Simulated scan of single mutants.
Amino acid sequence: MEQLRQVEGPEGPIRYWLTRKRVKNLNLRLDSGGEIRVSIPWNCPPEQADRLVRDKWPWLRRGLERRQAPPPELLPELSRPDCLAQLRQSLDRVYPLTQPLGVAYPQLKIRAMRSQWGNCHWMQGYITLNTALVRCPPRLRDYVALHELVHFLHHDHGPGFYAVMDALMPQWRQLRQELKPYAALLR
């Protein structure tokens, strides 16, 4: 059963929905409608949830602001062959950065994906890029293509992965932030 709670935050009252569940940890999320939701274990005092919401208010505020911001201007949808051509151009632009590191040119596959912009199948030698990327600016496509290429060197998101990203595309963190407003394309 959900309970509507309110805590005093640094900028005034913050309302959120509290649910007790069979969970081990406190879970905080901002749902698609902009509602703040917290799940807590059965034996957890609600004051812990209040404290979590207060402590995470800067993160919550940024998420709420993103949802209220006007959506980015989208490039037009393309046919599947044109989509493949555009995404191959991105791969071609960034591949020379990884080639000296021993990355073989991968096979490129495309498909519509709901939760990710791309993925790397390093053992099979191919990457998959989300067809929705063609509606994003080319610099963001290039960032995603490079991200997947770097996974041929570092299969996880550990320090080595980020060190290579920093060396090859120092502005990648900014590009990742620019990509976030396009997340609606994933749904």
Rank of each mutant, 00 (worst) to 15 (best):
E77F: 09
L78C: 06
L78N: 05
S79H: 12
S79D: 15
S79Q: 12
R80A: 13
D82L: 12
D82F: 05
L84M: 13
L84R: 15
A85L: 12
A85G: 05
A85H: 14
Q86C: 15
L87N: 09
L87Q: 10
L87V: 06
R88M: 11
R88K: 14
R88W: 09
L91I: 05
L91R: 08
D92M: 05
D92R: 13
D92I: 05
R93W: 07
R93F: 03
R93L: 07
V94L: 04
P96S: 02
T98C: 14
P100L: 11
P100C: 10
P100S: 11
G102Q: 11
G102T: 11
A104S: 12
A104Q: 14
Y105W: 10
Y105E: 09
L108K: 02
I110L: 15
I110D: 14
I110S: 13
R111F: 06
R111M: 11
A112L: 11
M113L: 15
R114I: 01
R114M: 05
Q116A: 10
Q116V: 10
Q116S: 11
Q116P: 03
G118D: 14
G118C: 14
C120M: 06
C120I: 06
M123G: 00
Q124C: 03
G125Y: 04
I127S: 06
I127A: 07
I127E: 05
L129W: 12
L129Y: 13
L129C: 12
N130G: 13
L133P: 08
L133V: 08
V134H: 07
V134Y: 03
R135C: 08
R135M: 08
C136W: 05
C136H: 07
P137H: 10
P137N: 09
R141D: 06
R141M: 13
D142E: 13
D142M: 02
Y143N: 00
Y143A: 00
Y143G: 00
Y143V: 00
V144F: 04
V144N: 07
A145L: 08
L146P: 09
L146E: 07
H147A: 04
H147Y: 04
L149G: 11
L149M: 13
V150G: 04
H151Y: 00
H151V: 00
F152C: 01
F152H: 05
F152V: 01
F152I: 03
H154E: 12
H154W: 10
H154A: 06
H154M: 04
H155I: 03
H155E: 07
D156I: 00
D156H: 10
H157T: 01
G158W: 03
G158N: 12
P159H: 13
P159V: 10
G160R: 09
G160S: 06
G160C: 05
G160P: 11
Y162K: 02
A163C: 08
A163L: 09
V164G: 03
M165P: 03
L168E: 00
P170Q: 06
Q171A: 11
Q171H: 12
Q171T: 09
Q174F: 00
L175N: 01
L175K: 06
Q177L: 06
Q177H: 08
E178H: 00
L179I: 01
L179T: 01
